[in-house]
Design a protein around this nucleic acid. Structure first.
Lengths: 167, 167
DNA sequence: CGAATAAAGTAAATACATTGACATATATTC
DNA sequence: GAATATATGTCAATGTATTTACTTTATTCG
């Protein structure tokens, strides 16, 4: 069947594809599959991978006492307009609060609620650990370090390509 | 300024983040930046990175004479509903055609138009090569091979996590 | 052959993510 | 201090991606 030929060539399509092309194609596929499987892993809590990234960021010591939306957007490398939307959903679910900054009437300070902190620590954390274990099965510590190294390197190049200054 | 502290810790946020978490966070950031910078690189032609992936796939020898939407979706690892939307835009731009398969009244066969093939070869290809060169600056051939290896490995794990059978 | 199964297209709801544009508030500079 | 510049939130448009659900057409199996 033609179907099988087209659907089972993950192993074959590297031969003529070119290294650079293949690298970016795999990055594209991996990111999609990460969102798909990651969101499914946290489905019982109605949290997506992007929301998970935000909640995780908010547990960082530096952001423990609240963080401005602009700073959070800069940390995640997403636009503030996009972040605002996800934050609205997290706020509606009661996981975070937006408070007006004292020294700046424009700015809102994002903070984890107690419920959000509990959700993260008690519910999400164990599932996330299981997810990492499954997704990185067969990856040694060195493998992870090397993979991160390449992604870091790529990210620096992409950031340099982005006209957006880092202010 | 607090701003600078929050916005310049790409190098610092690895220390306490955990290897697995950091790997997925970088994957998330890289994918977003790839779409952002890649789409900008091809902006003169109004083509996004996803459309670029599809046009590239259609130039594969195996798909040269047309490919079914289901097979193309399986190759790209996206849902056929998503693919249908992108194909509509590509069709509206005249880059591809959808013809009804002779042996199956349900199925549509996707083919590159002459205009689409020319756009790919004459216009997009050079810009894509420039983009790859910039995004992978400092990557040796071995670096690329190793990076692909890790992404392949990760993708296999993610695919195994996905309930979707490969039929 | 006829019934169950599978595959294809489509529609709709939801969520991410980008850009451009705008109003308002804060900072900088002269 | 006033003019300029920058930061912030928001609105709107567009594109990508998922899931669920439904209809129609093929295929398979009994």
């Amino acid at each position: 069947m033609k179907k099988d030929a087209a659907r089972n060539n993950h192993k074959v399509d590297g031969v003529a594809l070119g290294l650079s092309n293949r690298l970016f194609f795999r990055l594209y596929q991996c990111a999609n599959m990460m969102h798909k499987t990651g969101t499914k892993a946290l489905e019982p809590h109605g949290v997506t991978t992007q929301q998970w990234a935000i909640l995780g960021a908010l547990t960082r010591p530096a952001f423990e006492h609240g963080v401005a939306v602009g700073d959070l957007a800069a940390y995640l490398l997403v636009s503030r307009q996009n972040l605002a939307g996800v934050l609205s959903r997290l706020e509606a679910q009661g996981h975070i609060v937006r408070t007006v900054a004292e020294s700046d009437n424009r700015s809102r300070l994002i903070k984890l609620t107690d419920a959000g902190r509990t959700l993260w620590a008690e519910e999400m954390r164990p599932r996330i650990d299981d997810y990492y274990a499954a997704a990185l099965d067969g990856f040694s510590t060195d493998d992870r370090i090397h993979a991160i190294h390449y992604l870091d390197k790529l990210l620096r190049n992409l950031a340099a390509l982005d006209p957006e200054p880092e202010h």
